[in-house]
């Protein structure tokens, strides 16, 4: 079970974008988090993946509190999470070929080249990337193809939890459906839990076991974004 307990987080401690949020994802469960853009849901997703230190609150993973954030989190806690972000261009190191991009988490944990190559082959087939595409660099492929590679990279360490932050916001309907199918296959096969952050209610309702609305998580909705006028 993944529990976010009383999370307050943001970039300016005087004006946090997330205030005192509680959220739970059970093993094997898919939870959608629905909210307007700029509401702070991406920050919450980064906190859940141990990538952003909250100013208050804890993340509890299978009963064990997170022991740190970013590099201070032990490797086995960090790699329990696979993350996919909205913008594939920003999420891929522009110098790495797709093959190396996908293998990066395995290489980072000291796995051999041969072992990494085998696992990359498996995942490339799952996300629909050909050998020819694996040899290209990010600027030589489309957004959809690059997002496929980013998803494969997230799945490579066999994470217990998958966090998809607006994974399909830039993609067309067919690529969206294809990536969701890959995530669902993984979830079924591995029993991993899933947190999907997005702003498309139709998509989240169709994809997830339950959808949580951001407005129900935040104690005082008016406080959420006081400076933006609508």
């Amino acid at each position: 079970m993944l529990e976010l307990r009383g999370i307050t987080a943001g970039y300016d401690p005087r004006d946090p974008v997330v205030r005192d949020v509680y959220l739970t994802v059970a093993d094997g469960e898919a939870v959608g988090l629905l909210g307007p853009s700029g509401c702070g849901k991406s920050t919450l997703a980064r906190v859940a993946a141990l990538l952003h230190r909250p100013t208050a609150g804890t993340v509890v993973i299978d009963g064990e509190p997170a022991r740190g954030w970013r590099h201070r989190a032990p490797r086995e806690q960090r790699t329990a999470f696979g993350v996919v972000f909205q913008q594939p261009r920003q999420s891929a190191d522009p110098r790495l070929r797709l093959r190396d991009l996908i293998a990066e988490p395995l290489r980072a944990s000291g796995r051999s080249r041969a072992e990494a190559a085998a696992r990359v082959g498996e995942l490339a087939a799952a996300v629909g990337l050909s050998e020819e595409l694996l040899a290209r660099r990010p600027h030589e492929v489309s957004d959809g193809q690059l997002q496929r590679a980013c998803l494969a990279r997230a799945l490579v360490p066999r994470p217990r939890w998958l966090i998809c932050d607006e994974m399909t916001a830039m993609l067309d309907a067919s690529t969206t459906a294809a990536l969701v199918a890959v995530v669902e296959d993984y979830r079924r096969e591995s029993g991993a839990g899933l947190l999907v952050v997005g702003h498309d209610a139709a998509l989240l309702d169709r994809w997830c076991d339950r959808t949580v609305r951001w407005s129900t998580l935040v104690p005082n909705k008016e406080d959420a974004s006081p400076r933006k006028a609508t």
């Binding site: 959809g144 193809q145 067309d172 309907a173 690529t175 459906a177 199918a181 498309d200 139709a202 309702d205």
Partner: peptide, 18 residues
């Protein structure tokens, strides 16, 4: 047809391939 069928409101099945 494939594009429409990929919508989450409809069949939510992708067109095979790229």
């Amino acid at each position: 047809r494939g594009l429409l069928d990929a919508l989450p409101e409809r069949a939510f099945t992708p067109i095979p391939g790229m």
